[in-house]
Amino acid sequence: MTRAVSAAEIATTTSAWQIRATGLQVRAGRKRMAVDGLDLSLGTGVHGLLGPNGAGKTTLIRALATVLRPAGGTLELFGESVGGLGEHRALRRRIGYLPQEFGYYKRFTVREFVEYLAWLKEVPKSDIPAAVQRAVERVGLADRADERMKGLSGGMVRRVGIAQAIVNDPAILLLDEPTAGLDPAQRLRFRELLQELGTDTCVAVSTHLVEDVAAACTDVVLFVGGRLAFQGTPDELASAGGPEHAGDSPLERGYSALLLGSESERGSWRTSMCCASSRGAPSLPGRAW
């Protein structure tokens, strides 16, 4: 009796963290350093990447997806260093990625598109139909699987994007703004899926919606100006804010408090100190949002 356990399934991880960055620098475009000196370690669980627009979230996720190469510092995925012009094929087979601008082919049906991506992700040919069906069912599109992509609503297209990201059962799942375009009910369903995936996968979700983080994430990473401003549980984020800070919920107040703190730190003091330890970032009371 043969048991189909692939080498990838039983491979020991050489690192305690699926993602580990030290002093990471990544360029966006030619000149701008969008990620600048980031220290970050992410293990199994759902990590919410929070930050204002232009904080470098997308650039960071692209670097984690190995489509952008670090300009400085080190980035390790599964303990393997990423950099240079290496191909990282084995590494990429264990990564799922949903880009912010999720492009697709309109003529393809949902199933065909996810099949195509499964093929590109080098899922073994005999496993593709089952893997595609499972992914499509997980995002709740089983009944629309044979419809063409051009007939789908924005929320459904996003769900196809999530389906293609999980079709290869990734150990690192990178989702860039996955909740954009989802209606509230879909968003709830999506959070459930995230929690389910987070039990055995390292999920990094970038978002600018604080409530997404509160509901689905085990860990919050606040990212400002290309650097880590805060990493901790949603509760810790909430406790950073006080009644004097802007926001409707404790989390939002915590978010604005930390944002304020890290901005003033960078803006007026020009400190070169890394912000990794700024969990209790000093908040300046009285400053308007």
Binding site: V67, Y97, P99, L120
Partner: peptide, 13 residues
């Protein structure tokens, strides 16, 4: 190519 970024991120690229 609309799926360019996605295609660039896969092992088969």
């Amino acid at each position: 190519d609309p799926a360019y970024e996605l295609t660039a991120s896969v092992p088969g690229a």
